[in-house]
Write a protein that binds this DNA or RNA. Structure first.
Lengths: 181, 181
DNA sequence: GGAGAATATGGAGATCATCTCCAGTTGTCA
DNA sequence: TGACAACTGGAGATGATCTCCATATTCTCC
């Protein structure tokens, strides 16, 4: 986890790049990596300094996107079981609504990277799961990993003809499986 | 579905390429596409004529691999429910045992391609599912797509630290979800 | 507010994987 | 065995990726 403070121009450029990349991904445009620089009004060198690989760029976009979702994750007026349920369904709906983004990110974000850094997404799901299990709302012998795998599957299937419906089906299956004693 | 009969030398080369590729994938070697040709003792041109893209090559390997698994899919001494259960668990075990292969294939075989051509794998799962549902062994409101998505997630998660365990966990969840009324 | 020191920039061009093309070889069939 | 179609191999064109560094911008401290 880097601590270095970026110079003002560096931060500005970094943000411009991420913003441009998010737009490109969301539109599902297929762009040469170099062109992301042009989109952001920045030189190639700058792009590469901030994001050495396509993956790094995708990870940065991903982080920003997920942050928004995580905020709604915990709602104290609901039970732990309801929270888990709502979050997972919400996540799937988000993916469905942003297929382009989901496609790019799934294709490009290495699951191992997310796992290594204990991604916030995974931590949040782990927490929701643990609370729901403690409440007896779901079984307690399932790891977060299994859930992450299913989520990743959903995110990487955007090209399937009836993806949206199938994604919801997979989520249903997942939640039904969790509720099993 | 091609019908053309290949000349003897062409068939020989094609098979050599697929065999070499399977070995490379299984060892999880990262090779320039051109080098697959050298591995198979064949010129680059030949490689490209048979397999215009990396995906095409992966698909050929994939087809060969899956064929083996499908043979064991139906066992008339077992109930439809048991068959589905056994096949899905067997598939996961196969992936676990061939992580390198699973990684490459998942990374490279476009899910849409599989879906378009009604891949044999999908057809088989659909059939097993339908029979199990008719038997009342599993719910009847789930499409194959949902299952394929989970399987794809399992196949693409090979880089996660505790992949094997998590893969089995995901399969458990899937099967438990299917059994729900 | 100005003189360094530190940090960041951009884009020309090196590098390297991908893919095409076709002169030559091999297999097939009568 | 000859004639023709099918197939081969690999040199080189193509085009994306990434490096390098002379120049520019920001920061710090007096």
């Amino acid at each position: 986890m880097e601590k270095r403070v970026l110079r003002a121009d560096a931060r500005r450029n970094r943000e411009a790049i991420v913003a441009a990349a998010r737009a490109v991904f969301d539109d599902d445009e297929q762009l040469r990596f170099d062109d992301f620089a042009a989109r952001a009004g920045v030189g190639v060198g700058t792009l590469y300094r901030h994001f050495p690989t396509r993956e790094a760029l995708a990870a940065a976009v991903y982080e920003g996107e997920v942050a928004g979702l995580l905020e709604q994750a915990r709602d104290s007026t609901r039970s732990a079981g309801e929270n888990l349920d709502a979050f997972l369904r919400g996540f799937v709906e988000y993916l469905v609504a942003h297929a382009g983004l989901a496609r790019t990110l799934a294709a490009v974000v290495d699951p191992a990277v997310q796992a290594d850094r204990g991604s916030e997404l995974e931590n949040t799901v782990a927490d929701l799961l643990q609370r729901a299990a403690a409440d007896g709302a779901v079984r307690d012998d399932v790891g977060v990993g299994a859930i992450m795998i299913v989520l990743h599957g959903i995110g990487s299937a955007t090209d399937r003809p009836h993806w949206a419906a199938e994604a919801r089906g997979a989520a249903d299956l997942l939640l039904a499986g969790l509720r099993t004693g």
